[in-house]
Every structure is written in C-alpha cells, then in structure tokens.
C-alpha cells in the first residue's frame, strides 16, 4: 500500500507544476495570484499524504499552520491588488 501512496505523492507534486505554469505564464498579475493561492492549498495535500507515509502525525500540524499562513498571504496580496493601504 505504501508504494501506491508514493505514486500518489508524486502525482500531487506534479500537479504543482500546473500552478507554476500559471504563475510564470499568467498574462496579468491577478492570474499569478490565483496560481499562488492554489499552490498553497495543494501543499496541504502533500503534507497529509507525507504524514501517512512516514507515520508521523506532527506533519499535519505543519499543514494547519501552512493553511493559515497562505490565507494571510493571499489576503495581503489581494489588499495590495485593490490599491489600499495595509492598515485600512
């Protein structure tokens, strides 16, 4: 079973390449931000599968912290995009 999980982990990492393609190619700046947002969610899936393979449950803690940090980062980028000051 662990071998198949390894294959799934590689598939999930390969999906990140799609996001990187959108970040590099995106015609406007908003496209790049969409790519960054989706990339942050995909990393949580990588953390979850990795915690099963290595049988260490603290990797899920890293996933939860990653969700919150990626959320704050996306909000900051969106606020910059709409042209406001950060303390508004």
């Amino acid at each position: 079973m662990i071998d198949y999980l390894n294959i799934l982990l590689y598939v999930q990492i390969a999906l990140c390449v799609f996001c990187l393609f959108r970040i590099i190619r995106g015609p406007s700046i908003a496209d790049r931000m969409v790519g960054i947002d989706i990339f942050g969610i995909l990393v949580v899936g990588i953390c979850a599968i990795l915690s099963i393979i290595t049988k260490r449950s603290y990797i899920l803690d890293i996933g939860i912290a990653w969700i919150i940090l990626s959320f704050i980062g996306t909000l900051t980028l969106a606020k910059y995009l709409s042209g406001k000051k950060l303390n508004e």
Partner: peptide, 25 residues
C-alpha cells in the same frame, strides 16, 4: 483542519475576486 481549510479558501477567493475587479481586469 477541514473547517479551517474551508473558511480560509472561500474567504481568500472572495478577496481575490474583489481585488482583481477593483484593479481593473
């Protein structure tokens, strides 16, 4: 982690749509 992920993803998408519209895309 599931409800945290739900709220974070939906609110981030909402902020990105509004920011992109105000930016003029």
């Amino acid at each position: 982690a599931i409800p945290i992920l739900f709220f974070a993803a939906t609110v981030a998408a909402h902020a990105l749509v509004k920011g992109a519209y105000i930016f003029g895309i």
